[in-house]
C-alpha cells in the first residue's frame, strides 16, 4: 500500500487544468505566514527558485507540490487536500484573477500512513 501526503479535489483540478492551458507547466508551493499566507500558491514552473530546502510532497494532476523544509517539520503529520473557494487572495498565485483561491484542507495522517511516510 502506498500512501500520499497530498490530494486535490475535483473542483480544484478543473481550475488547475484551465491554468495549465493558459500558462503551461506549473508548480505548487505551500506558503506560510501573514495575510494571504498558509495557502497553496501556484506558479509557472521556473518562476520560483527551488533547492534542496524545498521538500517535494507529491504530485497533483501532474504538478509538483513543494513546501519549505522548515515548515514541513511542523506539517508532516498531516495530510493535505488542495481545494478551491471563491475569493480574492493577495499573492502572485495564478488562479487569483479567476476570482477563486486554492485553500488547504487538512487531516491527521492515520497511524499506517504516518508509519510509512514519516519513518
Amino acid at each position: 500500500m502506498s500512501y500520499t501526503r497530498v490530494a486535490i479535489t475535483e473542483a480544484a483540478t478543473s481550475i488547475l487544468d484551465k491554468l495549465k492551458a493558459k500558462h503551461g507547466d506549473l508548480i505548487f508551493h505551500q506558503s506560510g505566514g501573514c495575510c494571504d499566507g498558509s495557502s497553496p500558491m501556484v506558479f509557472e514552473e521556473g518562476d520560483m527558485y527551488l533547492d534542496e530546502s524545498d521538500i517535494l510532497l507529491g504530485q497533483l494532476d501532474g504538478i509538483n507540490y513543494y513546501m519549505n523544509q522548515d515548515q514541513f517539520s511542523y506539517w508532516k503529520h498531516t495530510h493535505l487536500t488542495v481545494d478551491v473557494t471563491e475569493g480574492r487572495g493577495a499573492s502572485f498565485s495564478l488562479e487569483i484573477p479567476m476570482g477563486v483561491r486554492f485553500i488547504i484542507r487538512s487531516r491527521l495522517l492515520t497511524q499506517e500512513e504516518n508509519t510509512e511516510l514519516n519513518n
Partner: peptide
C-alpha cells in the same frame, strides 16, 4: 498579484521594493 504585482516587483525601471505580505511572495 500575478498581473500587476509581479510586473511591479520585477520591473527594471524601479530602484527598490517594499513589501508587506506573506513568506512565499
Amino acid at each position: 498579484g500575478p498581473e500587476a504585482g509581479k510586473p511591479l516587483a520585477s520591473h527594471s525601471g524601479i530602484d527598490k521594493v517594499a513589501f508587506t505580505g506573506e513568506t512565499t511572495t
